[in-house]
């Protein structure tokens, strides 16, 4: 198992999980989101080839109403 910090919350996932699988597990597939891993943007085209490691810090964001 690996422990990730997702939007500041600790969550456990199987070792050998990539970002596309993570998005699927969170029911966010097809949603307009953007992901940052340890401070770097992970482009959509690389979600399936980006493997997560223990201790990774992820930010997953959406657009919301704002001024």
């Amino acid at each position: 198992m690996i422990e990730l910090s997702i939007n500041g919350q600790k969550q456990r996932f199987e070792t050998g999980t990539n970002i596309a699988q993570l998005i699927d597990a969170m029911a966010l597939t097809g949603k307009r989101i953007a992901i940052e891993r340890n401070g770097e943007i992970v482009p959509r085209s690389r979600h399936a080839e980006t493997w997560l490691a223990n201790g990774d810090r992820l930010e997953i964001v959406v657009a919301v109403g704002g001024g």
């Binding site: 919350q9 949603k31 989101i33 997953i60 964001v61 959406v62 657009a63 109403g65 001024g67």
Partner: peptide, 17 residues
């Protein structure tokens, strides 16, 4: 629009902005 963390565990079928 503002950019914010997605609400983990929220109903993902809600319409988005």
């Amino acid at each position: 629009v503002a950019i914010r963390r997605t609400n983990i565990g929220q109903d993902s079928n809600q319409p988005s902005l």
